[in-house]
């Protein structure tokens, strides 16, 4: 299990990295944390001709507040950096709750936010979380820079909206509104495994504890994060009842299209998605009420 040969170039700046990518296109891959890329190279399932190492670019791993609240997370930010950042965790409890489900500490020390999102594994937690939070991705090439909504970024299994000369350089996370509760839950065979099904839910309450905003996004049950927020709309305008939440779960189950795996049948995945929906919405609701 040794990787095939490749040419290694350590990019010295973002511009350098982008110009290399513009030059080599699909023959080149960015090397960020490498925690998904290198295993596939060791299995020789991936054989990039050129690796552009981003790890020595200053500033790509910075997290900073953005104007009008929220935060901007640099693509090279390691999971563990966010995990250790109490302020960040306080602002984005949904991310804080999802992070421990991502592999193991050794992987989280190395793996990066941008690498994870660009890899777009269907079972991965962060893409679903990013969609649920309404994140925007700052994408750059030598020619242009643009913003892409997370909900438009993931176009298929391991496929994103990124063009062959582009890089995801920063993730913008809007600050959650007051009285927002969130919950991330997943079922995996063992902690740290990819999810059989996972769900990221957020709910914002009005003055009378009525639901005024709700997001519900699954991971692991389709090629891309499955945004089921539309079926949760029925919760809007009322304090969510158990029955209403059950109805949302049933509608979400009908909406998703899991494929099954060696670990779970599609029916079990769908069943789990329903159970998790109930539990996560209920938890998000309670957290919103109690200001957690």
């Amino acid at each position: 299990m040794k990787p095939a040969s490749f040419r290694y170039i350590s990019a010295t700046s973002l511009e350098h990295a982008l110009s290399l990518k513009a030059e080599y296109g699909d023959d080149a891959k960015f090397l960020a944390g490498g925690q998904s890329l290198i295993p596939t190279m060791n299995f020789r399932l991936a054989r990039p001709a050129i690796l552009i190492d981003l790890n020595r670019i200053d500033g790509l791993g910075a997290t900073r507040p953005c104007d009008g609240g929220g935060a901007r997370v640099g693509a090279l930010t390691r999971y563990r950096t966010l995990e250790r950042d109490a302020g960040f965790a306080g602002m984005f409890p949904l991310i804080a709750e999802a992070l421990p489900h991502i592999a193991h500490p050794q992987i989280r020390n190395r793996g990066t936010i941008g690498g994870n999102l660009s890899h777009a594994d269907p079972a991965s937690e962060l893409p679903a979380v990013a969609v649920a939070l309404g994140a925007r991705f700052h994408v750059q090439s030598t020619k242009q820079q643009r913003w892409c909504d997370a909900s438009n970024f993931f176009v298929g299994g391991l496929t994103t909206d990124l063009q062959s000369d582009e890089m995801l350089v920063e993730v913008e996370l809007p600050a959650p509104k007051p009285r927002t509760g969130s919950c991330f839950m997943e079922i995996a065979r063992r902690r740290g495994d990819f999810a059989i099904a996972g769900v990221a839910a957020t709910m914002t309450l009005g003055e009378r504890d009525e639901c005024i905003h709700v997001r519900l996004v699954f991971c692991g049950v389709g090629e891309t994060p499955a945004d089921a927020s539309s079926v949760a709309e029925i919760l809007r305008g009322h304090a969510p009842t158990e029955q209403a939440i059950r109805d949302v779960a049933a509608a979400a189950q009908a909406m998703i299209d899991p494929s099954g795996s060696v670990h779970a049948t599609a029916d079990y995945q769908r069943h789990i998605a329903g159970v998790l929906t109930e539990r996560a919405l209920q938890t998000a609701y309670q957290r919103a009420r109690h200001g957690h």
């Binding site: 290694y8 490498g34 925690q35 290198i38 295993p39 060791n42 690796l51 563990r80 500490p105 050794q106 992987i107 020390n109 190395r110």
Partner: peptide
Amino acid sequence: QPVRSCLMF
């Protein structure tokens, strides 16, 4: 920081 040495060049 602990990392996997098989996942680094």
